[in-house]
């Protein structure tokens, strides 16, 4: 019985990770977008690609997006022009949602929207100045860097500890025992 509970719990935790991971590290939302899917959501109609921008050339009017992760990862080249809406959101390293259409063998971007990480339930968002105040005033909290460990190594916020998203389950023990203690998580940006 005890074991079943543990299993269910860890399944829950894994599920949460998929729902709340940094969009940049988040594979699950992009995984299903490898094949064009017709999602009729808000203003976006027609087929869309969701993924991270791995290259952009204003000269060639082309962006490369990585969709999917691991073995399923692939790079898709999408063209744009002055009629493409929201092309400013296509910045290298950022997550975007591209509504596209096929023009012969080319894929043409009709509009680009930033892919924002969803805030998990029960979590409060804070801004740079809020965090700066918390640090400067010596407030009692634990600051957690969720990026991969090597990113933490190259430069992290003052006093932060490293718990990469993928290792959260194993490293849960690094969090304070007291569940009322304030925790602040951050990663590599909103997308």
């Amino acid at each position: 019985m005890q074991k079943t509970i543990v299993k269910v719990l860890s399944a829950l935790i894994v599920a949460t990770f998929f729902l709340s991971g940094c969009a940049q590290e988040n594979s699950k939302t992009t995984g299903s977008a490898v094949k064009p899917t017709a999602i009729a959501k808000k203003k976006m109609t027609g087929p869309v690609y969701k993924g991270r921008v791995v290259g952009k050339s204003n000269k060639a009017k082309t962006i490369s997006i990585q969709v999917g992760k691991g073995k399923k990862a692939q790079t898709i080249m999408v063209k744009f022009d002055e009629n493409t809406k929201g092309i400013e959101h296509a910045t290298k390293g950022h997550g975007i949602i591209v509504s596209y259409e096929k023009q012969g063998k080319d894929v043409y971007a009709k509009s680009v929207k930033p892919k924002l990480a969803k805030m998990p339930k029960g979590v409060v968002g804070i801004k740079t100045e809020d965090l700066k105040k918390m640090i400067d005033s010596g407030e009692d909290f634990v600051l957690i860097d969720s990026r991969p460990a090597h990113r933490y190594g190259t430069g992290h916020l003052p006093g932060a500890i490293s718990i990469p998203v993928c290792e959260m389950q194993e490293l849960l023990g690094l969090l304070p025992k007291n569940p009322n203690k304030s925790l602040v998580f951050y990663c590599g940006g909103p997308t």
Partner: peptide, 26 residues
């Protein structure tokens, strides 16, 4: 961020600094 996991694990006071390291450095 793994904030959702912390909430799941029972932490009651979880915040997320969504803009993250790039905004901090900027």
């Amino acid at each position: 961020m793994s904030a959702g996991q912390a909430v799941q694990a029972g932490y009651k006071n979880v915040k997320v600094y969504l803009d993250g390291e790039p905004a901090w450095s900027k």
